[in-house]
Amino acid sequence: MGQKKRILVIDDEVNICELLSLEFTDLGYEVSTANSAFNGLLSLKKQAVDLVILDIKMPGMDGIEALEKIISTQNNLPVIIHSAYSHFKENYLTWSATSYVIKSGNLTELKQTVQDILNP
């Protein structure tokens, strides 16, 4: 295995950031977190990543707006939307995301999706 793949988690809920950080680090990824969309975009400018896990409902800039900004600058960067809400799937603005995973205590689906994208 060469260099570790980098994942950026953007979620205003610190517990989620913490949990995903622990879990994906265990799986061998390098994980950074941001607790707002704004900080996430800032972090992306400083350091390139291989995948973004993005929450939608966040105070200030929401995930949908962040997604647009991410794609307009790096349109090949995979983004997984990770939300407790399913109805944002109806919003076409989320369709440009690579995948949409609903939040759950069971991280199997999210892990599988990340694996599929980064290690196909």
Binding site: E13, I16, L19, K103, S104, G105
Partner: peptide, 13 residues
């Protein structure tokens, strides 16, 4: 669902 994901996630971990 959000908080539950946190509880469940850490518990499972």
């Amino acid at each position: 669902r959000g908080p539950l994901a946190i509880i469940g996630g850490f518990a499972r971990r």
